[in-house]
Structures are given as C-alpha cells and as structure tokens.
Nucleic acid binder design. Structure first.
Length: 318
DNA sequence: ATCCTCGGAACTTAAATTGA
DNA sequence: CAATTTAAGTTCCGAGGATG
C-alpha cells in the first residue's frame, strides 16, 4: 500500500479509519469535562496502530477551535498549491499503454519520454479509455451552501462521519454551525450542531449528545487535546491551538483555562492530565502522524492543548 | 544503483441532479 | 439549460522488492 507520504487533502478525507466502537480502553480517561482526542485507536489485542499511516478519527469535543499554522504551512496559502500544500499534481489526458501499465508518469508526446528512454517507442500508443457507465442512479444531491463552499476553499475542517466518532441521523445533511470564519491562517474545527450526533458506546468520554439539548451551534467545551501513550500526538513546528476571538461564543465553563500552546512545547497547561500535544494537521493529514510515529519516539513532546474560549479576544497570538 | 511492481491517493471529467 | 454535485475511470506517486 502506499503510505500516506503526501499530506492529504483536508477536505477529501473520505476514508476515515475505523475506530473500535466497543471495548475497553487502556488509556487513562481525560479529566472530568474534557472529551478525549485520539490520533490512533487503542491497540487491539496488543496490535500496533497501522504503521502505514492509516488515518484514524480524532474525536473533537463539541465546539469550535482554531488551529493555527505557520504562514508557509497554510494549506491554502498559495493558489498554485493544493490543499495539501504541495503543488497540485498534473496529469496527462491519456497515458500511453506502457506508462499506464507501469503506473508511471507519461507525457503527451508519442512516443513519450519514458518509452523513448526504455527503447519501447514503437509500442508507445494511447490506450482505450473506457466509456463511462450511464444510467447510474444517484441519491439526492446535497447543495453546498455558499459558506461551506467558502470554507472548503479556505481549507476549513468539516466533520466527517466516522465510526465511533459521531453519526449523522439518516437523511440529514451535515450542517455547519454559523460561526464566523476564522482569522487568516487559522482553520476551524466544527462539530455537528447539538442533537445531530451521538457518541458510540464504549468511547471514552462519550457523552451522547451535546449538552445544551437544543438545536443550534454547539456550546464551546473545554478541549482536552493530546494523545495518550504510547500514541502521542505531535504539534508541527509553529502550530498553535487557539480559540476564536469572537465574543459570540458561549462563555467558558467554570474552571477552564484559556489555551495557547506552541508547537513542540513541553509546557503543561493542564495539571489535571498529562496529555501530549496534538497536531492540528494530524487531524486531517494522517501522514503527519507517521513521522513522529516512525521515529519511534514514545517519549513525545508532551505539549498539551487545553483550550477554552478566551473572551478577551486576545487569544490570537499565533 | 537501477528497474520493476503495484496499492492506492490524487486527479479528471462525464453523467446525474438541481434550481432558476 | 447552466450550474453544481457526484463518482467512474485514469494517472502516477512512492514504497518495497528484484536484479546486476
């Protein structure tokens, strides 16, 4: 399999990994009131998490938090770049049969460069493109709202229905809460509005539904950010977890603290727990998980992000 | 070091659907 | 009927193995 070397598109994470919906978790539970986040599922039968970088869902608490990246790491920083941050891959309209068979890059010339190089120019011909199937019925289309389209273009994260994460009631389209757009260079994590999701049994910190019990944007909740050993989460250099400065959010829960955690920081801002740092990129870019994992560091950068809304609106030092 | 194989992510684009 | 969404089909990246 291809390891997920390339950063994945934030928006096209259409293959959320599986997550055990039942079972006992060996990890310490988060502090009271702090929903957990995982980058990898708990080991099952002593197995290691998928070392190839298969993504696993990260559970977010209800609410919104902004993940800040350094400017150069901003996925949508350059129009020439894809959401992954690397130049968008360009494909030829039709690869020659040789290149197609070898799964190698081709070009429009015939014979193509590769066939010339390997001395098989005489067999360098276009293949036959299959005709697309017709008459395939599709379900009703979900019309994207203007806002969600914009969000997509700015690389915002949207919730993905993932086993063990949250489930969308049948027939309902995921509606993004109408929170303001994050500041430039920030990406927002949305949770489905209250009552539209439910946690699976067996999830640590599964609380059923959002706490307010009525429709509308989810309440801000404390964010217990971090992996649990031995699968720590790691913040990329310069990454910061931050809450939006807007004053339109619900007030912080009693006893919670504002959060600003610099990437790689070993600072513990929450004495209640010993979570490791979370990598906002990991959330959408499982490949980013691979690096820290591959390095075999179990002693991770223990940076933690416990986020709470900062009404002062400061909270923006990125 | 180079080539080959191939799984699967990334990409293209035509068909289906929607809404004016 | 144009715009939009969806997904079938294709390209090709990149890891790993084979070979010299």
């Amino acid at each position: 399999m291809t390891t997920t070397e390339q950063p994945k598109s934030v928006l096209n994470s259409e293959q959320p990994g599986t997550y055990p919906s039942t079972g006992t978790f060996a990890y310490p539970p988060p502090p009271p009131g702090y929903p957990p986040l995982f980058a990898y599922p708990p080991p099952v039968d002593g197995q290691q998490p998928d070392a190839n970088g298969t993504p696993y869902p990260v559970m977010y608490p209800p609410g919104v938090v902004y993940a800040a990246f350094p400017p150069q790491a901003t996925p949508a920083a350059s129009p020439a770049l894809g959401t992954t941050g690397r130049p968008k891959r360009k494909q030829v309209k039709m690869a020659c049969t040789n290149c197609a068979a070898a799964c190698k890059r081709c070009d429009d010339a015939r014979p193509c460069e590769r066939c010339q190089k390997y001395g098989i120019a005489e067999s360098c011909v276009d293949g036959q493109r299959k005709e697309r199937k017709k008459g395939i019925k599709r379900g009703p289309y979900k019309r994207k709202s203007k806002q969600s389209v914009d969000s997509a273009h700015t690389g915002d994260y949207a919730p993905q229905s993932t086993e063990g994460e949250w489930t969308q009631p049948p027939g309902t389209a995921p509606a993004l809460p109408s929170f303001p757009h994050p500041p430039e260079g920030y990406y927002s994590f949305y949770y489905p509005p209250s009552g539209t999701y439910s946690m699976q049994e067996g999830q640590p910190g599964a609380e059923g539904t959002t706490s307010n019990g009525h429709p509308g944007p989810p309440p801000m909740m404390p964010l217990y950010v971090g992996g649990f050993p031995p699968y720590p989460l790691t913040l990329p250099p310069g990454a910061v977890f931050q809450l939006p400065p807007s004053a339109s959010y619900p007030p912080p829960l009693p006893g919670s603290q504002p959060l600003t955690v610099e990437a790689g920081s070993a600072a513990q801002t929450d004495k209640k727990a010993q979570p490791t740092g979370v990598n906002p990129a990991d959330v959408s870019d499982p490949s980013a998980n691979k690096e820290p994992q591959g390095s075999g560091e179990t002693e991770n950068d223990v940076s933690q992000a416990n986020s709470m809304r900062d009404d002062s609106g400061s909270g923006m030092e990125a």
